[in-house]
């Protein structure tokens, strides 16, 4: 592990990108920054330009208009970087998964490190997701399979 990777685990600065979200997830991200949840005690803070950021916090199903801007933002973020999709929309397109105006999920545009589903996700879930992206907590979901045997 080199020094850059070691530093990366400590306190990540996030840049919040609204890629066509309904503002539900944006409000929950804002909620996570309030003293009640207080993510700054872990060194996580919101920055105002992608050039200062370690992680992109993307909300929304990625509309066609915002796709180009999202790619430019991704290029502007210095390496190493994380891409975190917040909400059901980046995860699978949400209820706009088959709309002509959206790309239908963040995974079709950028390489995503972690998805945080929820409509909107709780601030605790966002906190958990960011910690999971850094490898600090384990994953809790697994697919449910069932086959009737006769």
């Amino acid at each position: 592990m080199n020094a850059l990777d070691w530093c990366f685990k400590k306190s990540i600065w996030v840049y919040h990108v609204n890629a066509g979200a309904c503002n539900g997830c944006d409000i929950e991200i804002l909620n996570a920054l309030t003293p009640y949840y207080d993510v700054e005690r872990f060194g996580i803070r919101l920055v105002h330009t992608p050039r200062h950021a370690d992680a992109l916090l993307v909300t929304g199903p990625v509309t066609r208009q915002v796709r180009e801007r999202l790619l430019r933002l991704y290029d502007a973020t210095p390496e190493p970087k994380l891409v975190i999709g917040v909400g059901s929309c980046p995860t699978g397109g949400g209820i706009w998964h088959n709309s002509y105006a959206t790309v239908g999920g963040l995974g079709k545009v950028l390489p995503v490190n972690i998805y945080i589903p929820g409509c909107p996700p709780r601030p605790e879930a966002i906190l958990y997701g960011v910690a999971q992206a850094l490898g600090l907590v384990p994953q809790q979901v697994s697919p449910q399979e069932y086959a009737e045997v006769t």
Binding site: T91, I114, I116, P117, G118, P121, A125, Y128, P143, Y146
Partner: peptide
Amino acid sequence: QQFELSTASPQDLTIRAQFQ
């Protein structure tokens, strides 16, 4: 009541049930 659903691949969130 499960809300900590974060995952690296959305396929982890599927439920598949097969019936004869």
